[in-house]
Design a protein around this nucleic acid. Structure first.
Lengths: 137, 137
DNA sequence: ATATTATAGACATTAAGAGTCTCTAATATC
DNA sequence: GATATTAGAGACTCTTAATGTCTATAATAT
């Protein structure tokens, strides 16, 4: 019971893309190296983010991936959802309406999701940036 | 990314045991029928709960499982933990100290756990009991 | 002593995650 | 327009964990 590695890779890539000056594109080759992944594998993951609309891709020379300009307010939950699909932590094995146990589990899950929805990637990116600046000085 | 079926079975069994009048023992055969499981499989799950101390088992005739008398305040998290082991939803692939992404994920997980820790099985059992009484009347 | 019940552990089956490889489609540049 | 470059699609393999089953053993009540 844990989030997939793919979600992990996706989150890190998103933050990296947000740190690109001028929102310029980065190729999957470079992105893959950062996390020591094979480019084809990472591209499979990034395609999901593209389809979900969080990043844009352009093939060909000088192409690559960049954050969708219009969507800077991307939450952790958005990325998780794009990669993992629509999951529910718990399905009652006995399928009767209004299982009390299921209700409790769903409520806890909802609260976690709400929290992850309130966490924006851009905040992490800014924080990472300021940490880097501190190190330089 | 979801809780195992075993956790589901364990939770239902626990609530059922809490509804036993006088805290009397129930054999795994009967417990398994309730959820349409094979007795040997369910017993494997219940052994985990026994080792964790949430229920007590007595072998032999008239034996079976019952809730530990001294531990009526059992939370959802207690059962989940007993079955799934100590999980963490997220491990950063890049193992450097203080990964910002990992921090956010861990915090969300902590909050969910805290909620599941505050939900007591006994409450569910009482609620189920009162629902049954309503249906009768 | 015997019937009954839990426990242990080996074993098989299945499903999902993780990753590779190859071929195709789109784009920039010359 | 030809070519180099890059993303996308999809078949494929490998590994791991979940989900059970089966059998033999240990403990207990009667």
């Amino acid at each position: 019971m844990r989030y997939s590695n793919a979600t992990n890779y996706a989150l890190h890539t998103m933050v990296h893309l947000m740190l690109q000056p001028g929102g310029s594109s980065v190729g999957v080759q470079e992105l893959a190296e950062l996390q020591q992944l094979s480019p084809t594998y990472l591209s499979k993951i990034l395609t999901k983010l593209t389809k979900a609309g969080w990043i844009e891709s352009t093939p060909g020379a000088k192409g690559g991936y960049k954050v969708s300009r219009t969507k800077h307010e991307i939450s952790f939950l958005d990325v998780i959802h794009a990669i993992e699909g629509d999951t529910s932590l718990f399905d009652c094995s006995i399928h009767h309406e209004g299982c009390l146990i299921e209700n409790v589990m769903r409520q806890a899950e909802e609260n976690m999701k709400r929290e992850l929805e309130s966490k924006l990637l851009i905040e992490i990116a800014k924080e990472a940036e300021s940490q880097q600046n501190e190190e330089k000085s």
